[in-house]
């Protein structure tokens, strides 16, 4: 009988396969759209941008969308895995730190308070809002080295999030014109990304990704329990702050760039754990790749089903992802 390959080797091969799947989805995303472009043409203009009609479609419309989809998906998947590990709650996602609520609050302040009406104008307000709420959550729930800390953080985040969402809604209801802008922002989208913004955000997203991936061993240690983790030389407070910073950078910027895209941050870590088991060093990269696959697939499905663009990606991430997620939950014995 052939000896089974060692676990790290198997997981590394699996990760490569997942990346290949992501690249496949990327190609699919370049190929599909309301305007049919032949496969050969896509390949040709990818190599040489000759400013023909197919070249403009691929380079100016589909390429940015695909790049943003990948970035946002990776960021949300990673942030979700970090949150679930930190709060030890399988239903936590970046929203639990109040990221979405804070970003929405920032956007509304920009619309109502300062009269800013363009997407590029919102981006940094959204990120400021997310920073505000995350800081508040940590100030209230992030103290102390005891066993109640994970629950405390999750609860404080939910409370602050609810307060900010409601404050946002109050502004919306008192100003119907703002409502009309807000209802489109709140359904996150990657259809018309501003490439300039994306290039601005990219270095930060990269830094956040590197930071997140480096946190695996620390998270493994505190998963054993606060006392054991401390005994192993991992500072709890420091870990918590580092996780908070990377979640803020990743999910905050992703939300600022594309609006709130739900469910990816929740589902991607579950999919990842189904493959890898509880080792965070592997859960994190898998969650990032799966997150990106989910976003790209949802976007492609949206373009195929309703080319007019009404089925935005944030609507479809759940419609594509939820059946998969429910099947996964049914199959597995333990959740967290």
């Amino acid at each position: 009988m052939r000896r089974a390959r060692s676990r790290p080797v198997r997981l590394a091969i699996g990760l490569l396969a997942a990346v290949a799947l992501l690249l496949g989805c990327g190609v699919l995303s370049l190929l599909t759209g309301s305007e049919p472009v032949a496969f050969g043409d896509v390949l040709r203009v990818l190599v040489a941008d000759d400013r023909s009609e197919p070249a403009i479609i691929v380079h100016d419309l589909r390429m940015p969308r695909t790049v943003v989809g990948i970035c946002v998906g990776i960021a949300l998947g990673l942030a979700g895995a970090l949150m679930q590990s930190l709060t030890r709650n399988p239903i936590a996602d970046p929203g639990v730190l109040g990221i979405n609520a804070g970003a929405a609050f920032g956007v509304l302040v920009a619309i109502v308070g300062l009269g800013i009406g363009s997407f590029t104008g919102y981006v940094w307000f959204a990120f400021l809002g997310a920073t505000l709420s995350t800081t508040l959550v940590y100030a209230i729930g992030g103290r102390g080295d005891d066993s109640g800390a994970p629950v405390r953080l999750a609860l404080a985040g939910t409370a602050i999030g609810a307060a900010l969402v409601s404050a946002t809604e109050a502004m919306v209801f008192l100003d119907p014109k703002a409502f009309d802008e807000y209802r489109f922002w709140i359904v996150g989208d990657i259809a018309k990304p501003e490439l300039g913004v994306v290039w601005q955000l990219l270095p930060f997203l990269l830094a956040g990704t590197v930071l997140a991936l480096s946190l695996g061993p620390r998270l493994n240690a505190i998963a054993l329990g606060e006392e054991l983790g401390t005994a192993l030389g991992v500072g709890l407070l420091r870990t918590r702050v580092l996780v908070g910073v990377s979640v803020l950078v990743l999910a905050g910027l992703a939300t600022a760039a594309a609006g709130p895209i739900g469910f990816v941050g929740l589902a991607a870590p579950h999919l990842a754990r189904a493959v890898t088991g509880p080792d965070q060093r592997w859960v994190l990269p898998y969650a990032g790749v799966f997150g990106a696959v989910l976003v790209l697939l949802a976007d492609v499905v949206g373009r195929v089903v309703l080319p007019s663009g009404e089925l935005r990606v944030a609507i479809l991430t759940a419609i594509v992802g939820a059946p998969l997620f429910v099947a996964l939950v049914r199959r597995r014995r333990a959740a967290a």
Partner: peptide, 28 residues
């Protein structure tokens, strides 16, 4: 619904903050 979110959220947050800063060992 707007007011419940603001009032409930702020009240829960302050209650959590006070409770925990007083008795840091209590579990959530």
């Amino acid at each position: 619904g707007v007011a419940t979110g603001v009032l409930g959220g702020v009240y829960l947050a302050t209650l959590l903050g006070r409770h925990w800063s007083r008795r840091p060992a209590a579990s959530g």
